[in-house]
Each structure stands twice: as structure tokens, then as C-alpha cells.
Design a protein around this nucleic acid. Structure first.
Lengths: 215, 215
DNA sequence: CTCGGTTTTGTATGACCGTACAAGAAACAG
DNA sequence: CTGTTTCTTGTACGGTCATACAAAACCGAG
């Protein structure tokens, strides 16, 4: 074991990162095409063009780690696209609207990733981590909803409009996330495959409008 | 083969109907507890208190038929509760609102059935039938949405209120169904088990209000 | 009691799964 | 060239699954 200056371990070989990426991509495509229950390491290896399942075992400690890697890869990519667009908005309503629109536009471009994520979330037996993730996402939306609500209420008060009975932001947030997932599912049913779906991207605006009107 | 007057086959033995019912109930509970991918005929037999899986094979042609029976049983029960309540409403908005409220109240009382249905829908490999079912349900909602929209538009016009840009009823319907499913899923995550969840039942009104405001 | 259908039990089979592992091939450093 | 590490291949094991099927138990009618 050679002594290094700062790091004691060389972290990742070139081959290793490339292989891991290749396998994760194949896992995403397989999950999207076959669903969680019909996805096996053998099928993933086949999709990836690997001649042996042993390959996957070499680069991942097991199926569980591979699935975790898929989830974190997909979520990280989504966050990097959506978060800055949301943050760029100046009003709370704009941020809420943009979250929905940007999410659907992003998912329309990467439907396989989106479906793979849903499959893992609903299919994996180890639900603790999935639930944690879902809860985190819902919490973000809850915050966006609450702030948009406050902004709209203030605006209504200043123009003398009658106040509305406030809706529980958490309930609204769950509805929003359900609407997004449902739209993605329908898009995939309507047109299976990995190509982008412009119809899905176009649904962001009306869905956002629907919820903003309701706040 | 004895010749009968009208029916050539005696339809169902007493034992047969009772056993089928017992097995379907056990399937529902198992699906709700373990999820589709961890549900097997063996586990279902165990839940039902049967000493052998052969029992299931005797009363059902296979796993596929059992799952179909679960789906149709659950959907029939739901329809019998929700449909008359919806039909009793006099206004289109009332029918739309009642659909959401009655659905959530019914599902709150029978969460195991609801979760089992979702598990089959998302987990079963034979997606044709599930997609057909989901499409049918969404079509019903689409109709409710379109009529409520028309009613609200007419009301706005008669009071001189400005007209709203109309939202695609199909997009709204998908959002509604997603919101319902999402609420059920969260209820089950919050409190696993088969007992009724009063919180879920109470969410019907605000969710309906949210969508009615948005139309 | 006896017989014929119905119901229940128990087991066998073949397929697929995740994982482990041995052995070979390739890349590479000294 | 040689030894070592990294990478790849192929196979084998233990387990679970859906299904099929044979034998036993049950039960009502004649």
C-alpha cells in the first residue's frame, strides 16, 4: 500500500467510472421498459451489452447498491436542472409555477429516468429510503406552496378581494406531486420509449395554472 | 353429463364462492403489506390460513386470474359506492366535487384494497388490462371535469365575470387521479395497516375545493 | 355401506433470481 | 521479461417462484 500525500486511496479508475455509468444507464432503460418486477441483473447486463452478470457484481456490491445509484443519479440530475430555474424567479408564485413547469419539461426530456425512478420507488422492498426521498421532495413543494399562498393572500387583501379559506399546504403539495407523476405515467403509456415527449412538456403550464388558481 | 333444463352447468358451489372470496381477501392484505414484488401465491396462502398453495391453483387458473379477480372485485366495490353518490348531485360541479370526496372517503375505509389495486396496476407485467382500466377511470373524470367547467363558465358569463382560459379537461383529469392516488399512498405511509384513516377521508373536501377553484 | 364427485394435502419440476467465486485475460510497473 | 493489479468471463449454489399433479380425505345420494 503506497503512502500518498493527502488521500490514502486512489478513488476511481477510469474504467470503473465508465462501467458504472454504463450499467446505471442500462438499468434505467431496463426499468423503464420492463418495470421493477421484471428487471433483473441478467436483463440489465444484457441491455448494457455485457456478456456476464459477474460484471455488475464487480462494480456494485449488489442489486441494492445499483438501485440506490440509479435513484441518486436521476435525482441529482433533476435537481441540477430544476433548482436554479426555481431560484431565478422573483415571486413566490413564480417559483411555484416554475417548479411544476421545469419539472415536467425536464421529465419530458428524460422519461426513461423518470419512469425508472417511479418503478424503484414503488417496487423496491426496502421502502425506508424511498419514503425518505419522497417525503423530502414533498417537503420542498410544501414550502413553495405555503409561500405562494401567503403572497396571494397578501395581494388579495391589498386589493380588497375577499379572503379564501386556506388549504393545508401539505395536502396541496401531495396533490401536486401526484399530478406530476401521473402526467409522466400517462405520457409513457401514450408513447412508450425514451424519446422526448413535447406534449408532456407542454402540460406543465396548464397544470401550474390549475394549481395557482386553486391557492 | 346430465341434461339440464336451461343451464348446462351448475355455476358455483357454495364452497367455491367462499374459498374464492377468502383467497381474494388474503391477496389484498398480502399485496397491501408486502407490495407486488414480494407477494407470492405461497404468501397469500399463508395469509389465508391455507396449508397449501395447491388450494389456490384449484380455485384459480393461475396467479394472473387471481390478480384480475382482485382488481375487478375492488373496482366493482368502489363503483357501487361512489357512482350513486355522484349521480345524486344536481349540479355538474357538485358531481365533480362528490367524485373526489366520495372516492377518498371510500378509500380511507378500505385502504388495503386501494393499495392492493395500485400495487397490481404498477407491478403486474401484463399492463394491457391495467392501462385499459386506468384509461377508463380517467375518461369518467374527464367527462366530469368538462361538464363542471362548462357550468362554471356559464355562471361566470351570467355574472359578467371575465372568462378564464380553458384548461384541457383531460390534463385536469389526470391530475385529479394522480392527486387521489398520491393522497392514498401518503396515508398508507403515514399509518400502515388496514384500519380506516379519518385524516385521509377529511382530505377529500380540500382537494375537491382546490380543483374546483382551478377550473 | 358404497360409489362418484368435490375438496384438500403434499410434493415434484423446471425456471429464474442474486450472489459468490475461480480462473483466465489484459494492462501495467519495475 | 516478470510479477502484480485490474478487469472479464463463466459457472455453480441456494433459494423462491408458479404450476402441475397424484394421492388422500371428505361428503352426499342411492
Amino acid at each position: 500500500m503506497p503512502a500518498r500525500t493527502s488521500e490514502t486511496k486512489d478513488r476511481r479508475t477510469f474504467t470503473e467510472t465508465a462501467r458504472r455509468e454504463q450499467i446505471v444507464r442500462a438499468a434505467v432503460d431496463t426499468l423503464a421498459e420492463l418495470g421493477y418486477s421484471d428487471t433483473s441483473l441478467g436483463k440489465i447486463a444484457r441491455t448494457a451489452g455485457l456478456s456476464s452478470v459477474g460484471m455488475i457484481s464487480y462494480y456494485f456490491s449488489g442489486k441494492s447498491e445499483l438501485m440506490s445509484e440509479v435513484v441518486s443519479t436521476v435525482l441529482t440530475a433533476a435537481g441540477e436542472i430544476v433548482a436554479p430555474r426555481v431560484a431565478a424567479q422573483e415571486t413566490a408564485v413564480g417559483r411555484f409555477r416554475t417548479y411544476i413547469e421545469a419539472s415536467l419539461e425536464h421529465l419530458a426530456d428524460r422519461r426513461a429516468e423518470a419512469v425508472a425512478l417511479i418503478e424503484i420507488t414503488l417496487g423496491a422492498r426496502d421502502r425506508e429510503r424511498s419514503d425518505e426521498l419522497e417525503a423530502g421532495a414533498t417537503e420542498v413543494v410544501t414550502d413553495l406552496v405555503a409561500r405562494a399562498q401567503a403572497e396571494l393572500d397578501a395581494a388579495r387583501e391589498s386589493t380588497g378581494e375577499p379572503a379564501r379559506e386556506p388549504l393545508d399546504p401539505h395536502v396541496v403539495a401531495v396533490a401536486v406531486r401526484g399530478a406530476i407523476n401521473s402526467a409522466v405515467g400517462r405520457s409513457f403509456r401514450r408513447r412508450p420509449g425514451s424519446e422526448a415527449d413535447p406534449e408532456l412538456a407542454a402540460e406543465g403550464a396548464p397544470i401550474a395554472e390549475l394549481f395557482v388558481r386553486g391557492l
